[in-house]
Design a protein around this nucleic acid. Sequence first.
DNA 1: TTTCTTGCAAATTTTTTGCAACTTA
DNA 2: TAAGTTGCAAAAAATTTGCAAGAAA
Lengths: 123, 123
Amino acid sequence: MTKQRLEVLSFLANADQPKSAKEIAKILSKKGVDQATVYRILARFKEGCIINQIDFQEDQSYFELKDRGDHHHIICQECKKVEDFKGCNYDNLVNSISKNKTGFAKITGHSFELFGICKSCLK
Amino acid sequence: MTKQRLEVLSFLANADQPKSAKEIAKILSKKGVDQATVYRILARFKEGCIINQIDFQEDQSYFELKDRGDHHHIICQECKKVEDFKGCNYDNLVNSISKNKTGFAKITGHSFELFGICKSCLK
DNA sequence: TTTCTTGCAAATTTTTTGCAACTTA
DNA sequence: TAAGTTGCAAAAAATTTGCAAGAAA
């Protein structure tokens, strides 16, 4: 565990929403962490299942700490505001789907995001 | 409707799984379609809701025709094989979530993909 | 000390842009 | 013809790599 890794962890721990690699690199460069290092750390953390990659259909990936628990996101397509939501029991759904899939041995993960327009942007 | 757009539509219509921009550009370049044109067409089609963008947590986006109906994907994390699945009624879920979200005026779309290991890769 | 990680710089890869020429409706 | 699209080449953005120096266990 290095200083640079702790910086990435700390940044993500304090984030209230998923952060892009670019943004993490930009912020941490102020603390002397190189962008190549940030990309390498994110790749390792993802392999090690410490962080989740979140896709907002934007050609850019976002990351958040896995230990924030099972939840998903609603993102505003205008202003990109992100809200979390929980309490959906679709794990049952995943289970029933996984029982019916003959081609797959197991399901290890899933993504589930909603896209919409937030009230401020609706005007 | 131009020749180039028809090429993109035709390519996606014949695809059995979502295709990346890079792959579309690569294949269509053999027919003289420029990569810049492919990216522009994909952007327009996405705006116009003719295609869907699918994210496989890979730093690369995939696209498929919207008219293939409501379905989602299971992707094998080893060999990247993709299988479709349908018949999950989680639109109810989306509706109930959307009723409870005070910050959002409406939900316009969603993503839902499963990740797993296919039987061939399990060995 | 031994292994793994970092910074730096450069290279790749992916996506976007400007603009003149060309199509489409 | 008028509006919008394309190809080309170049630029910009995003990510990855090689390698010597440095930090961690």
